[in-house]
Design a protein around this nucleic acid. Sequence first.
DNA 1: GGTGTCAATATCCTTTTGGTAACTAGGTAC
DNA 2: GTACCTAGTTACCAAAAGGATATTGACACC
Lengths: 132, 132
Amino acid sequence: MDTTDLPANILDPNCPSRVVFQRIGDKWASLVIQVLGDGPVRFSELRKMVNVVTPKVLTQTLRALERDGLITRTVYAQVPPRVEYELTSLGESLLQPLTVLRHWAESHVPTILEARDAYDEAQDEALLGSPN
Amino acid sequence: MDTTDLPANILDPNCPSRVVFQRIGDKWASLVIQVLGDGPVRFSELRKMVNVVTPKVLTQTLRALERDGLITRTVYAQVPPRVEYELTSLGESLLQPLTVLRHWAESHVPTILEARDAYDEAQDEALLGSPN
DNA sequence: GGTGTCAATATCCTTTTGGTAACTAGGTAC
DNA sequence: GTACCTAGTTACCAAAAGGATATTGACACC
């Protein structure tokens, strides 16, 4: 059975649209995509921009994104080697939804952090109130 | 140092806006939020709608969302117990960014799956070409 | 007093994720 | 020939996430 003409539904556990949410949730993938939004970046630069990610994990992330057709990997025949990663048009099309989410995140984070503090305090008090 | 007036930046590893991406990436959290978009739902209903999630994991997810102020938990003094989960206004405000992402996901998944197949095949051939 | 309902918890176990540290390849510079 | 460059790979390890299964509490029904 092929999925191309199904009304994709995220709530259906068999629907592969869930993979997208997994990509976004990946610790580094969405960050990489956003960094690549300004144009091609090479491996070592990416490492610096995304900040202290180990080469192994960055490679894993990049391979996964490449596999999904979101980025391309270009090797230049130079010494020392130079490899550049760039968004595909598919990758670029993800940029906007990601930006929407990012803006939401950046503007609501204070509220979320306050909610956490309040919640944690309430929990503490509940524990003090009934220690057994 | 307080974060409320900082220009939140997802690329800064110290910026808490990253927590949002982690929430979204959570295997069940974003699904729960989207299910709750239609109004309050009780625990057992949620379990069915999100499909085969174990109670432990659903509880974990719900507690995390509650802690972040995205949903509320209401216990009705009944027997058997009835507990309803509902989006807060903060949770509702996340609905739209999530929908944007969801539409992207549902419409581009076929392309992604094709890219994967192509990538995997290319890998296989590369292995066959140079088996050592 | 046994059974059922709902919303969990508790215990245990497996899988996945992320990370450290060391090493490789191919060449250039000294 | 030793050191250094980039872009990785390899082996190993710890923590976290996710899940299976059994049990609990409060009551209602029979």
